[in-house]
Amino acid sequence: MLGIEFVGLLTDAGRYIIWSIQTKSNSSSIKLQLYNSGNLILHEQGYPVWQSFDHPTDTLLPNQLFTKNTQLVSSRSSTNYSSGFYRLFFNTDSILHLCYDSRKTTTVFWPDPGLLSWQLGRYQYLYS
């Protein structure tokens, strides 16, 4: 059976790749569907193999999860949608951070970097 390769690219105004996906399939039953929720899902034989909700950019939609494996990245400006300098993400202690990260400087805006994780209500211990 011949394999089918699906490649998707999204480029910004400067023709830089800002998002891509590459997947291979031994099935000819591949379907790409945009749902009313805004989630774009690639199905293979009826099963999802990739979805846009797992790769947020600068916007979260209702019912889209924001987890430790994802981050939001601002756009450069209201007319330039390439990746900007602000990032919203969870660190390894599950604390949400807002960070400005440019070529010249990196600054954590929130929470106060001088506070310890337990002062922010986050603990590394499990409770039963």
Rank of each mutant, 00 (worst) to 15 (best):
A13L: 09
Y35L: 15
W110E: 08
G3F: 09
Y86M: 04
I41R: 02
K104A: 14
L96M: 08
L32A: 14
N36C: 06
S27D: 03
L61I: 05
G121A: 01
N80L: 04
G14R: 12
S128Q: 08
S25I: 04
L34I: 13
G14K: 11
Q22E: 14
Q33N: 13
G3D: 05
G46S: 06
T107S: 11
L2R: 05
D93K: 10
F6T: 11
S27T: 12
G84C: 04
K68R: 15
P111I: 07
I17C: 15
I95G: 04
R122M: 07
L126M: 14
F66C: 03
K104Y: 15
R76S: 03
T67M: 00
F53S: 00
G14H: 08
R87W: 02
W118C: 10
D101F: 10
Y35G: 13
Q22W: 05
G14S: 13
L116T: 14
Q33C: 09
F109I: 10
K104L: 13
T106R: 14
W110R: 02
I30C: 05
D54Y: 06
S52V: 02
I4G: 01
L61T: 07
T57M: 07
Q124L: 09
G114C: 09
H43M: 15
F90V: 03
S74W: 06
D112T: 09
L98A: 04
P56K: 05
V49L: 00
P56T: 10
R87P: 02
V49A: 00
S29K: 13
L34F: 10
I30N: 14
Y125F: 13
S117H: 14
Q119V: 01
L72S: 06
G38Q: 01
L61C: 01
T79F: 04
K24I: 10
L120D: 01
T23A: 12
S117T: 08
Y100Q: 11
P62W: 02
S128G: 07
L61G: 06
D58G: 07
S20D: 15
Q71S: 10
I41D: 04
G3N: 07
T59M: 08
Q45W: 03
L42Y: 07
N69Y: 14
L98M: 09
S28A: 13
C99Q: 13
F53E: 01
S78L: 11
Y81C: 02
S128F: 07
N39A: 07
F85A: 05
P62C: 04
D112C: 07
S94P: 02
R15A: 15
R87M: 06
W50Y: 11
P62I: 00
S25C: 04
S20K: 15
L60D: 05
L2G: 04
R103H: 11
T70M: 12
R76N: 08
T59A: 06
L98F: 02
I21L: 15
D54A: 07
